[in-house]
Simulated scan of single mutants.
Amino acid sequence: MPLTHHVILITGAGGGLGSTAALALAKQGAHIILLDKSIPKLEKTYDAIVAANAPEPIIYPFDLAGTSEMDYQELADRIDEKYGSLQGVLHSAVEFTAFSPISVTKTKDWGHTLNVNLNAPFLLSRVLLPVLNKSAHASIVFTSDSSARNAPAYSSAYGVSKIAMEGLANILAEELEAFNKIRVNTLVPGPVDSPLRKRAYPAEDKHKLPAMESLAPVYVYLFGAESIGITGQVIDARTFNL
């Protein structure tokens, strides 16, 4: 299996895309660190991976918005102590409430959304860089949104966070490119039949959307040897071809 001996951390691993990615990568032999604040959802993803006879994952309950920098550093230290290196990080956790105008957006909601969608990926990437650097090659993947990245009306804090997150990914990719060890890319999943899509567009006919499992080849590519040397790119799943 192409990802044997790979250790990959996935945020939002109890959610739709996070759990899909976790199962797809585990089936390729990767050891997955499942990160989410919901223990029941983590356990569901864990059970799915075990049922697939993939390497047993690790559950790590973690509230991205409610923890301190010390908690982030403790996470990085534990990964370093247990595995000695890390081959991948998938930022899949997302906070989205509803489409609404800026004029009625509450300060608390604004701050919480930016904490989960932007500040958490920054903090997590920063503390994990030393562990990722211990690998010959490693991959960091940020998850964007095809609808939010163009700043449409009413996308509010969610749209702002995705735009800023893509900027963060680009900056990090350029800073790390010269070392030729850690590649950084952004995945745009496109419309898929996910829980987030259902919340955002409740009246949409979900039967016309691709299943979340259709993204499996993209995840395997982004964390596999085929993408070594590819960095600073936006990978759109709708036009992705191996």
Results as ranks from 00 to 15, higher is better:
G167H: 08
G224R: 08
T186N: 09
P2L: 00
A136D: 12
A164F: 13
A151L: 12
A225Q: 07
V184R: 01
T186S: 14
S161T: 13
G12P: 03
E204H: 06
S92M: 01
K162E: 04
A225M: 09
T45A: 07
A211N: 13
M70T: 14
P195G: 04
S135Q: 08
L209G: 13
D77G: 09
S144R: 07
A164V: 09
A65D: 07
L3Y: 10
L168R: 11
T105M: 12
V131I: 13
T97A: 11
E95W: 06
L90T: 00
L242C: 12
E74P: 07
I230A: 12
L222W: 09
V141K: 01
A48P: 04
R78N: 14
L9C: 12
P40G: 04
G16K: 00
N241I: 06
I171E: 15
G229H: 11
V160K: 02
T67W: 09
S85N: 13
H5N: 06
T67F: 10
L90H: 05
Q28T: 07
E56V: 14
M212P: 15
R197P: 03
H207Y: 09
A216I: 08
V160Q: 04
S144H: 11
A200D: 02
I39R: 03
T97V: 14
I235H: 08
A76V: 12
Q28Y: 07
L129V: 10
K27P: 08
F223E: 09
A173K: 06
E74V: 03
N133E: 13
P202S: 05
K198R: 15
V104I: 14
L114W: 10
K206V: 10
A13H: 06
A26S: 07
